[in-house]
């Protein structure tokens, strides 16, 4: 059986080779070779045309990108501008921080002064309910002194944005850079003030008129301490915060 299969596959000089070498057979040839070639040629050309069209589109796209590149690039703010703007903003922020710290310092001083005054007041008034009055006063003063700090915190971003409006794209940057200044004032309890000592000399000393002027940017904050009238024996403490203009 295997011999037969071998013969089948090794039949070189026999019927297979005759069949293989058959170039054409009557009735089995292409009916219209030219028509077939036309079809084939159109298919080949169509493919070439398609490939060419793809290349044209690719070239056109590249050209378009090339032409639009300067415009695309022009719309972007160059890194130098950002750097310069950031440099411009930095001093402003620093100034602001400095002013804020100054303000904080002054407000603390002011507070101290107020506390001293209050002590004097307490001495002169000699109220029965010492603690209640002192507490009340302390709270009032804290609120009064906090005001400039609150103002500062509210005004800060506005001031910075004004400085930056020329550059147009920095608000985010500013928001990141601007420190939120939160004025935390020390709460002083009545116990910390110590014993109240009656001293008439202190009254005389305080009776001088004090005016503290704190100026921040274009706004001024005035704090005035008016002396008490010696006749009535009461001290009047006034604090005024108002813009300069």
């Amino acid at each position: 059986m295997e011999q037969g299969m071998l013969n089948e596959n090794q039949n070189k000089g026999g019927w297979k080779s005759r069949l293989e070498n058959l170039d054409e057979l009557s009735g089995e040839t292409c009916r219209d070779k030219n028509a077939l070639w036309q079809k084939l040629d159109s298919r080949l050309n169509e493919n070439q045309r398609r490939t060419r069209v793809v290349w044209y589109w690719a070239a056109a796209a590249c050209l378009l990108v090339g032409l639009l590149f300067p415009f695309i690039k022009g719309n972007r703010i160059p890194a130098d501008t950002v750097k310069v703007t950031a440099e411009k903003i930095q001093p402003a922020t620093n100034n602001l921080t400095a002013t804020a710290s100054l303000l904080k310092k002054e407000s603390t001083e002011q507070k101290e002064t107020v506390i001293e005054k209050k002590q004097a007041e307490n001495k002169s008034l000699r109220p029965l309910n010492h603690q209640a009055i002192a507490k009340n006063n302390t709270l009032q003063e804290e609120v009064t002194v906090k005001k400039p700090a609150d103002n500062l915190a509210q005004q800060q971003p506005v001031v910075i944005v004004d400085t930056v409006t020329a550059t147009q794209e920095i608000p985010v940057l500013i928001a990141a850079r601007t420190p939120v200044l939160k004025q935390k004032l020390k709460v002083v309890h009545n116990n910390e003030l110590g014993d109240i000592i009656e001293d008439n000399h202190a009254n005389e000393h305080i009776s001088e008129h004090h005016t503290i002027r704190i100026e921040f940017m274009s706004q001024g904050i005035f704090t005035s301490v008016a002396s008490s009238s010696s006749e009535s024996g009461y001290n009047i403490f006034k604090t005024k915060t108002s813009p300069s203009n």
Partner: peptide, 11 residues
């Protein structure tokens, strides 16, 4: 090439 080989391949 097509003319040369078409008939043979047709078979």
């Amino acid at each position: 090439l097509f003319d040369l080989l078409a008939d043979k391949m047709m078979l």
